[in-house]
Design a protein around this nucleic acid. Structure first.
Lengths: 189, 189
DNA sequence: TTGACACCCACACAAATGTGTGGTATACTC
DNA sequence: GAGTATACCACACATTTGTGTGGGTGTCAA
């Protein structure tokens, strides 16, 4: 199955207002910065921090979040999915997906020669510049005709060569130099 | 052939120590809570908060992060997608590769059921939340057993169903609801 | 009636946190 | 030499933030 990392556990019912507070917290956590107690109060229109504490205590008791003492913004969500209305488990969502950026360049993949490695026509390949690579690495290589190509490097015993990830394409035994190593693939739908 | 094109903006160089500070911040942001100035000082072994401020100022000047004034943990990274956070990107041909960020969440793909669509185990799927989708769209669907799955939506004539992109997996005709539509795939090597 | 809970408030206090204003030293460029 | 950047420090200060204590209302079930 192409399932996904999402913990499931029996849900305790929330009231409408608790739901609203939780929703706000989720939004903020999604934006990578959990709210402070006073930010929650401001958003909800509460005049007292004590009110927010009541809510946080309830949400914690019901298993929706964890808190760290004496720590600013120390609210962490606990993932869960409720039957019916999907509640997305932010805990298992990658907080941020890092794309290599330093000493890199990007190129757009043309063709199908790496399709068995899950690299498709039109994908963006992020390449980190380096002159060497290990056996099996996918690299950007410069061929002697000045063409740049994305292939798997093979350094078995003899002379290194380039291998496509598509049986229809034969290995390349021509001269080449390594431009860099593939570090990311980004695809748009 | 896999080929060509590329420009990529040269990054402003960081010193080794600046790199180390940035790495720590990235780790913490990845754990969904940016560090405080004193946490950075503690980690780096600095005795003064002023030292950290010098580093943050340098990293900000060089375009690696943004800060919000008078806000605890108000450090935001630039150059990585933080679910919801503005700004990703790094250049590619036309300017930069943008990854959808509004109203989205990210999931880590498990399994091989979409491999024929070039989606592999461990890939990060960026999903835009929406309740409907078109025939042929790849969607995140919530099954009745609370499992979330990534599949292609088929709305031919009769009842909509889910289709894997791997012949070994049969279509799913169970009840499901649409959580969102796949807008990006990001893979790390 | 008692108790548990949801749902609010005021206010004080301590801790955490960001900021400001000074230092010192080295290295490099112009 | 002046200027700039890096790389540290000390310390005071204001603000932000979490916490504590105490108060109130209403509902609902036992």
């Amino acid at each position: 199955m192409c399932g996904i990392l999402l913990p499931m556990k029996p849900q305790v019912e929330l009231t409408a207002k608790q739901e609203k507070v939780l929703k706000f917290i989720r939004e903020r956590v999604g934006e990578n910065l959990p709210p402070t107690i006073r930010e929650i109060a401001g958003e909800m229109g509460f005049a007292s921090t004590g009110t927010v504490r009541d809510y946080l205590a309830a949400l914690q008791r019901k298993g929706y979040l964890k808190r760290e003492n004496n720590k600013s913004r120390g609210i962490a969500l606990i993932g869960s999915i409720a039957a019916g209305e999907p509640k997305l488990a932010y805990e298992d969502i990658e907080g941020y997906v890092e794309i290599a950026r330093e000493n890199t360049f990007a190129l757009k993949v043309k063709g199908e020669s790496m399709i068995d490695a899950g690299i498709m026509d039109g994908d963006i390949a992020v390449i980190r510049k380096q002159k060497t690579a290990d056996n099996g690495d996918i690299i950007a290589a410069l061929l002697d005709n000045n063409e740049v190509t994305l292939k798997r490097l093979k350094t078995g015993g003899g002379k290194p060569f380039l291998e496509a990830a598509n049986k229809k394409y034969p290995p390349i035994h021509k001269e080449f130099s390594i431009i860099g190593k593939l570090v990311n693939i980004v695809r748009k739908y």
